[in-house]
């Protein structure tokens, strides 16, 4: 079969598998969503309560509740439950958050842009800086700068980014008070396209962005350095110099481009992990993005919300991987997919 068709089908299969797994988890996990819902219900936290309600009515009410919160009616035949669930999720209905008493999508979707904003800018910053730092070290290979820089990078890379996040927060947030320690924007200026409001957003996002950029910077800069060193030793570089090509052109079109292209896939994978990576980060900075809600959902046993986050995370990863695979051959002419590496 055609490699690309195969690859698309594979991704669809992954997404389907994830859906099915969430369904199984919701349905049968001991102490899982269904049990939890039942317990809430029995305790009278949800649904009609009081003594005036008879059992029949309570059961009927429970079925309705289940339908609302977890998208299917646990008393219907299994396949009906399954199709109901899958159908609802595919049409964007992710159930109802127990904690917020709102549909999951209404809780989650407004949070997405915030997380994407932080993630995208962080990836961008990290990408640019690792290209520059990596290339600079490669050009100075073997010098004191290179040895010191590489050591620092390896050392820095071994610090987990949440430690960095906490340190940043402690130093610049609490000690110096230069940056806010929680939240997404300033409440005072009216929301909208005005500078004070936007400045507030940037102010709040700065520390999380730096912390997140840190997460991929060290390893990325080391990889860039290695790529660039390899290319600096290539014969075609020497051949180009002999042909009289200017060093500016060689740096840009030969070294930089060829060293950056292999990092493309890696960057797309980072994009894929934008939501899963946000959980700890947004918890530390109390930044109300997808990660923060996910964390809250875990704390509050808000299963419908949790499942919504879980779906969002996996689908993003599957799509990013797919895009990486499908487009890499176009971005980097050296690579053609489906290629057999056999020499024959």
């Amino acid at each position: 079969m055609n490699y690309y068709v195969k690859r698309v089908l594979q991704s669809l299969f992954t997404i389907w598998a994830v859906l099915t797994i969430t369904f199984v988890l919701i349905r049968w996990m001991p102490g899982g969503p269904l049990d939890y819902l039942m317990a809430q219900f029995v305790q009278g936290n949800l649904g009609p309560s009081g003594t005036g309600v008879d059992t029949q009515e309570r059961i009927a009410a429970f079925e309705r509740m289940a339908e609302v919160y977890i998208n299917f009616d646990p008393t219907a035949p299994l396949y009906v439950q399954y199709f109901e669930y899958v159908g609802d999720v595919l049409t964007g209905n992710l159930g109802r958050s127990i904690w917020y008493q709102q549909p999951v999508e209404e809780v989650l979707f407004p949070a997405i842009p915030w997380t994407v904003f932080i993630g995208a800018v962080a990836i961008f910053i990290s990408f640019i800086s690792r290209v520059i730092v990596g290339a600079a070290l490669a050009y100075k290979e073997g010098s004191k700068l290179d040895i010191g820089g590489t050591t620092l990078l390896i050392w820095g890379h071994s610090i987990p980014f949440y430690v960095v996040a906490i340190l940043l927060l402690y130093t610049f947030g609490y000690q110096f008070g230069w940056f806010p320690v929680s939240g997404r924007y300033n409440p005072d200026p009216p929301a909208g396209l005005n500078w004070p409001f936007i400045a507030g957003i940037l102010h709040h996002a700065a520390l999380p962005m730096v912390a997140l950029a840190w997460a991929s910077f060290g390893a990325g800069a080391i990889a860039m350095r290695a790529n660039a060193i390899q290319i600096l030793g290539e014969d075609y570089l020497r051949a180009a110099k002999l042909r009289g090509i200017t060093s500016k052109r060689i740096t840009l079109l030969y070294v930089a481009r060829n060293a950056i292209l292999p990092m493309y896939t890696q960057m797309l994978i980072q994009v894929g992990f934008i939501f899963s990576g946000s959980i700890i980060l947004e918890m530390v900075f109390e930044y109300r993005g997808v990660g923060w809600y996910m964390f809250q959902a875990i704390q509050n046993n808000d299963y419908p919300l949790m499942m919504g986050c879980f779906l969002l995370i996996t689908v993003t990863i599957a799509i990013a991987m797919l895009v990486a695979d499908l487009t890499y051959g176009l971005v980097d002419p050296r690579v053609r997919r489906g290629e057999s590496s056999e020499s024959f």
Binding site: Y4, V5, G329, L330, R336, E339, S340
Partner: peptide, 22 residues
């Protein structure tokens, strides 16, 4: 007879892969 699948690019998305009879 031994065959290999040939190269492909996303631009030949809907073509069957070509086989090389090595």
């Amino acid at each position: 007879t031994v065959e290999f699948e040939g190269d492909q690019s996303i631009l030949d998305l809907f073509d069957e892969p070509e086989y090389v009879r090595a």
